[in-house]
């Protein structure tokens, strides 16, 4: 029997594969297609205080081995979430991490306070890194002292796991991870999307309505691995590795460079059951390598640190 589970602040996740915020709706959209009880957890679509319409089309463009999106945090708002979605999520046999996005510190606090009064939420992931909204989003996520303040204030409001989702669109992501750790957060999600752009050469216009968007998918996996590796050198709190994971092999790479667990994102758009497949593949890999605990893979990469260019950053 292989131990697949891991814990954050005393909350036990049955395996190390979660589905990433914004790629699995509120869980109920694909309940006929996916057995969510085989996932470590579900990170919901970002919630704000009021419903958000999101950005005008065009919101999605496929690019080589990836996709650019500019959804703009379209969501039903925390009140509708509590009324319409939480009853379903209370019944699912997996951990439910509610992702919160906001355009002010006050809004983050208000949403979290309201969710604290509800049953059925196992933890929070804080989106300080959406590249596609004017207020909040990246303004917060690229400001280290703001990221710290948000983490501190939310920490004071909850005893549940508090996970901060970091952006790669900064010079040294490890500085942000350290700030968040010092502020008392329990884990970091690394990475959110990478700012990118695509141009329609016939119309001579950007393909996305917001000009730039967030790149995801296999195209960003090498970036994500390097960021997870960097953060793993800098902090002790668990890292949830995200970025282009399509297979168990991808997930294992993330664990080896220091992720405690992973989130599957864009792959859900192609096959909503990818997370289940990745979890199954991870278990099989551990079996084949006669590991007692998948944790033995975490940070198990052997590397020549003296050759790592990261050393100069840390």
């Amino acid at each position: 029997m292989i131990k697949e589970s891991f814990s954050i602040r005393g909350v036990e996740f049955k395996n190390r594969v979660l589905v990433a915020s914004g790629t699995f709706g509120y869980g109920d959209e694909v309940k006929d297609l996916v057995d969510v009880s085989k996932l470590g957890g579900i990170c919901t679509k970002s919630l704000s205080w009021k419903p958000r319409d999101g950005n005008p089309p065009r919101r999605i463009v496929e690019t080589p081995s990836g996709m650019l999106n500019s959804i703009g945090l379209a969501n039903i708002g925390v009140h509708n979430f509590i009324d319409e979605k939480l009853p379903y999520l209370r019944q699912v046999d997996t951990k439910v991490i509610v992702n919160i996005a906001a355009s002010s510190l006050q809004e983050y606090c208000d949403v979290l306070r309201l969710l604290e009064e509800q049953e059925g939420i196992d933890g929070y992931e804080i989106n300080v890194s959406c590249p596609n909204v004017k207020e909040g989003g990246l303004n917060f996520g690229t400001d280290c002292s703001m990221t710290r303040r948000i983490s501190e204030q939310l920490r004071a409001l909850t005893e549940k796991p508090l996970i901060i989702k970091l952006t790669p669109n900064v010079t040294h992501i490890s500085e942000f991870a350290r700030a968040v750790e010092e502020a008392g957060a329990d884990a970091v999600s690394v990475i959110n999307t990478v700012i990118g752009m695509a141009v329609d050469i016939h119309k001579k216009k950007p393909k996305l309505s917001t000009v730039t968007g967030g790149l995801s998918g296999p195209a960003i996996k090498p970036i994500a691995l390097a960021k997870v590796y960097e953060v793993a050198q800098a902090v002790k709190i668990p890292i949830l590795g995200i970025g282009g994971i399509m297979t168990a092999e991808d997930a294992i790479e993330f664990l080896l460079v220091g992720a405690t667990a992973v989130q599957v994102g864009t792959a859900n758009f192609i096959n909503p059951g990818t997370g289940v497949d990745v979890a199954e593949g991870l278990r099989r890999f551990a079996e084949q390598h006669q590991l007692a605990d998948v944790a033995q893979l975490v940070g198990a990469m052997e590397s020549n640190v003296e050759f790592s260019i990261l050393q100069s950053w840390l």
Partner: peptide, 25 residues
């Protein structure tokens, strides 16, 4: 037609503007 990824409401990629109602898309 819509520029969509998933086809099942996960990605929110394919909005069309609504003529009325509370939601814009």
């Amino acid at each position: 037609e819509g520029d969509m990824a998933c086809g099942v409401g996960l990605c929110q990629g394919c909005p069309v503007e609504r003529a009325n109602g509370r939601r814009k898309y």
